[in-house]
Simulated assay, not measured.
Amino acid sequence: MTSRMPRGRLLTPRRRMLGLAAGAAGSALLRPAPLRATAAPRLLPPVAEADALIAFGHTGPITDGGWTAAHNQGVLAVRQAFPRLRTVYVESIPYSADATRIFRQFVAEGAQMVIATSNYGDFIRDVSDRAPEVAFMECDGHTVTGNLGWHYITHWYASYIIGIAAGLMTRTNRIGFVGSFPIPSVYAGANAVLLGARAVNPAVSLQAISINAWFDPQAATQAGTALAENGCDFLCGIMDEPAYLRVAQQRGIKAAMWNTDMRQYGPDAYVSSVMLDFRAFYVEQVRRRLAGTWRAAPCFLPLGHGVDRDTWGSSVPPDIARQADAMRARILGGYNPFQGPIRDAAGRVRVPAGATMDDDHIYQWDWAVEGVSGLD
Results as ranks from 00 to 15, higher is better:
Phe177His: 15
Ala291Met: 11
Thr117Asp: 05
Phe281Trp: 04
Gly57Ala: 10
Gln80Phe: 01
Arg31Pro: 00
Val90Pro: 01
Leu10Glu: 11
Ile164Pro: 09
Ile124Phe: 02
Ala108Ser: 02
Phe338Arg: 08
Glu284Phe: 04
Ile183Phe: 11
Val274Pro: 03
Tyr265Gly: 08
Arg125Ser: 06
Ile162Gly: 12
Gly60Trp: 15
Trp365Leu: 10
Arg42Ser: 11
Pro182Asn: 08
Leu10Gln: 13
Phe281Cys: 06
Gln364Leu: 10
Glu109Asn: 02
Pro61Thr: 14
Arg328Ser: 12
Asn72Lys: 05
Thr2Ser: 15
Pro83Glu: 03
Ala25Val: 03
Ala296Gln: 06
Met262Cys: 10
Asp64Glu: 12
Thr260Gln: 09
Ser92Trp: 07
Ala243Gln: 09
Asp358Gly: 03
Ala70Thr: 04
Asp240Thr: 08
Leu168Pro: 07
Gly167Val: 12
Phe56Ile: 04
Gly65Asn: 12
Gly163Val: 05
Thr100Asn: 00
Ala220Trp: 08
Gly60Lys: 13
Gln364Ile: 05
Ala326Arg: 14
Pro83Asn: 04
Leu195His: 02
Asp233Arg: 11
Ala269Ile: 11
Ile238His: 14
Gln339Ser: 09
Gly340Pro: 05
Trp294Pro: 09
Val114Trp: 00
Pro242Leu: 10
Ala50Gln: 08
Gln264Glu: 13
Asp261Glu: 13
Gly306Thr: 02
Gly60His: 15
Ser27Asp: 01
Phe215Gly: 08
Thr117Glu: 07
Leu290Ile: 05
Arg343Asn: 05
Gly237Met: 13
Ala355Gly: 03
Met327Asn: 07
Pro32Gly: 06
Arg328Gly: 07
Ala40Gln: 10
Ala50Ser: 09
Met357Asp: 02
Asp366Ile: 04
Val134Tyr: 08
Arg288Phe: 10
Arg198Ile: 06
Gly237Lys: 14
Leu76Asn: 01
Met1Asp: 15
Ser210Val: 10
Ala40Leu: 10
Tyr120Met: 10
Gly231Ile: 12
Gln105Trp: 00
Leu35Ser: 08
Pro202Trp: 05
Pro298Lys: 05
Gln264Asn: 04
Arg309Lys: 05
Met239Tyr: 07
Met327Ala: 14
Asn212His: 13
Gly163Tyr: 06
Glu49Gly: 09
Pro182Tyr: 11
Arg79Pro: 00
Gly66Tyr: 08
Thr172Ser: 15
